[in-house]
């Protein structure tokens, strides 16, 4: 029998495809949600180790700008995405060597600092980045085919879905592997890990680099969806959004990030338009509520409601 999470993931896939077919404007929203879900999965890896990064917008923007810069030279989506992930991975490894030495407050704030530096460079180095105007991205080809708008949107959505499923599967395996379990051990008491001869710093570095690559991939998908990149992608509000979705979705399952980001993006389409100057406030209040009263997030609620129902049946 298939594990329940696999069934839910497949049902979710069908649901997303159906929704995108029935309401074409949802395609955009759902692609964005899946892309962010990938980045949130990276945040989830770090949360497993009890660490929270307030700066992962750095990797979103690195992925997005990699696409924007390379698009003239490298026209194909299927090449751009792995390239963006690789660049983010490289940067993540370098910064990770530094931040993986730190925990808790320092870990969170150092990441914020790095992302704010990058944000300001994106804004100020106008000659390279065109500042706040941002860079327009021309629609890439997909596997060599120059697609019209509609099929292109379907292709990106399909690709995002495949990546979410494939990388989600890998991440789920990672979490039960020795490395994934060691990550959880960092949260309880990492000196004990050292007494097993395992470097906690290196374990965290692996997770950090993975989260950077996921962030870069997510940013590249966003760039290929919105076809326009701006420094705003590196702003702290974007990092906050990723953390918010991670907590909203809940850390109990690898599906949490996707559940969280789909719900988040759907609500945001309406709410952010209605409350442009109070959106962060709403997010903050909900975040407080979840942490103080429902710390397992949406996936936890779902488990409580549905899974328990199944068991009873």
């Amino acid at each position: 029998m298939m594990p329940r999470a696999t069934i839910v993931a497949l049902l979710g896939t069908v649901g997303i495809l159906a929704a995108a077919a029935l309401a074409p404007w949802l395609k955009f929203v759902l692609t964005v949600a899946l892309a962010k879900g990938l980045a949130v999965m990276g945040i989830l890896l770090l949360l497993r180790a009890g660490q929270v990064s307030f700066g992962h917008a750095l990797y979103l923007s690195i992925g997005a700008y990699t696409v924007a810069f390379l698009r003239p030279a490298v026209p194909d989506l299927l090449v751009l995405l792995p390239l963006a992930a690789a660049v983010a991975l490289g940067v993540g490894l370098v910064i990770g060597l530094f931040v993986a030495r730190y925990r808790d407050i320092f870990f969170g704030m150092l990441n914020l600092a790095f992302s704010m530096v990058f944000h300001s460079l994106l804004e100020k180095l106008y000659a390279i980045t065109k500042g706040t105007d941002g860079i327009r991205v021309f629609r890439p080809t997909v596997a060599g085919f120059a697609l019209e708008r509609l099929p292109y949107e379907w292709a990106v959505l399909g690709l995002a879905l495949l990546l979410a499923l494939g990388l989600g599967w890998l991440a789920a395996r990672f979490l039960v592997s020795p490395l994934g379990q060691a990550l959880v051990a960092i949260k309880t008491r990492e000196t004990r890990l050292e007494f097993a001869g395992v470097s906690a710093r290196r374990v965290l570095l692996v997770a950090y680099a993975a989260s950077a690559a996921l962030g870069g991939l997510a940013g590249a998908l966003l760039a290929c969806t919105t076809l326009h990149v701006t420094p705003h992608l590196a702003y702290w509000t974007q990092s906050g959004e990723l953390v918010f979705i991670a907590i909203l979705g809940g850390g109990g399952s690898i599906l949490g990030p996707y559940l969280g980001s789909v719900v988040y993006e759907l609500v945001r389409v309406y709410a952010a338009a209605a409350l442009p100057d109070a959106w962060q406030m709403v997010l903050g209040a909900v975040l407080l509520g979840i942490i103080l009263f429902a710390s397992r997030g949406l996936w936890g609620l779902y488990e409580d409601l549905v899974m328990r129902g199944w068991r009873r049946a």
């Binding site: 925990r103 808790d104 969170g108 406030m281 997010l283 710390s295």
Partner: peptide
Amino acid sequence: RIYDKEQVLQLLVTFALFMILEDVQKL
């Protein structure tokens, strides 16, 4: 409410406060 909670939750709570206060200024 959070003095005895894990550090990561404390950080998240003050981050949530930060999100709220940023918009309070705008409003």
